[in-house]
């Protein structure tokens, strides 16, 4: 568990340089509220207090990672209550919760504070002036995320704002673009994800199937005509990488069987692209994962691990 936390720290630090020091504050509020809410919920419900296992810390970090950097610290606090108390402990308890708590927290915030959650984006800072947003009123500086621009203003406006070609991929890969706190740096997210793979904490099945299907479908349907979309951009924008490596993979809410995991990943990919292109929101991976979560046990019921050898004469 603490290894995952360690993997989430570099993207967080980068985010501080991109969006300013208040990112750290929001994350701290989120983590501390998650831990506190977990302890209190477990006490209230008469269960063993397990905050030392680090899972509440991860949920706290992930929750902060999927909210915009310019919001009020009240939001992560409320999100934490929703994520941990309702999402984790009321809807099942450790190991039995159906939905990814962090994403449940985020969707709750999105429903309750639609304005803040969809407009408190900050443009990346120039010259690492990490304290510059502190005094300003947030509204003075807000901007729009790349996916929103693309969706609402079209590809031309997008290219004007964010450039094109290699320099575009470069900025996006490193993380110098507007977005949620932790989703911007493709490079650091992938690096952390690869480390988790290397250590055996996660396997390739979910990230590859999620990202692969997002890339493929965006290439086919994401452009002005068929087969003209930009698969690389689709993966680098929004929360695709964060979702694929850190959220869709959540042990408790994803299927356990490798084949089910592939199906599940592809399902998330399809839903993400559908929401991005046709739905009401510019980004869809959060809802895609939440929609697939309850299917995990169903998929595990369909696809069974391969037994050592069948019994003689067939049958069970």
């Amino acid at each position: 568990m603490w290894t995952v936390v360690a993997c989430l720290i570099p993207p967080l630090l980068l985010s501080v340089f991109v969006f300013g020091i208040q990112v750290l504050f929001i994350t701290a509020v989120s983590v501390m509220s998650c831990v506190a809410v977990e302890a209190v919920s477990q006490k209230l419900l008469g269960r063993r207090v397990t905050v030392r296992d680090g899972s509440a810390v991860i949920t706290g970090m992930l929750l902060a990672f999927v909210i915009p950097p310019g919001v009020s610290p009240l939001l992560p606090l409320l999100g934490a209550i929703m994520a941990i108390y309702i999402g984790k402990h009321i809807l099942g308890g450790i190991g039995y919760n159906i939905f990814n708590p962090a994403l449940l927290g985020r969707s709750f915030l999105l429903a309750s504070f639609p304005v803040a959650m969809t407009s408190a984006w900050l443009p990346p800072l120039k010259n690492m002036a990490i304290f510059s947003y502190l005094g300003d009123s947030v509204n003075a500086v807000t901007t729009a995320t790349p996916l929103a621009v693309m969706k609402e203003q079209g590809i031309a406006a997008f290219t004007e704002l964010f450039g094109s070609g290699a320099s575009l991929y470069g900025t996006f890969f490193l993380g110098w673009r507007p977005g949620c706190i932790g989703e911007t740096s493709g490079f650091l997210l992938v690096l952390g994800g690869l480390y988790l793979l290397y250590r055996g904490y996660i396997t390739w099945h979910i990230p590859v199937s999620v990202l692969g299907s997002i890339a493929l479908l965006s290439w086919i349907f994401g452009g002005e005509s068929y087969f003209s979309g930009d698969p690389l951009l689709a993966i680098l924008s929004g929360g695709a990488l964060l979702g694929a490596f850190y959220m869709a993979n959540d042990y408790v809410t994803c299927p356990t069987n490798k084949i089910s995991q592939l199906v599940y990943g592809v399902g998330i990919g399809i839903l993400t692209v559908m929401i991005r292109l046709k739905g009401g929101y510019p980004e869809g991976i959060c809802y895609a994962i939440l929609l697939m979560n309850p299917l995990s046990p169903v998929l595990d019921g369909w696809f069974k691990p391969r037994r050592f050898a069948p019994p003689l004469g067939g049958g069970r």
Partner: peptide, 11 residues
């Protein structure tokens, strides 16, 4: 021991 977190490692 604590509840199963469905990591699938046992599988």
């Amino acid at each position: 021991h604590s509840p199963c977190i469905r990591c699938g490692w046992c599988l």
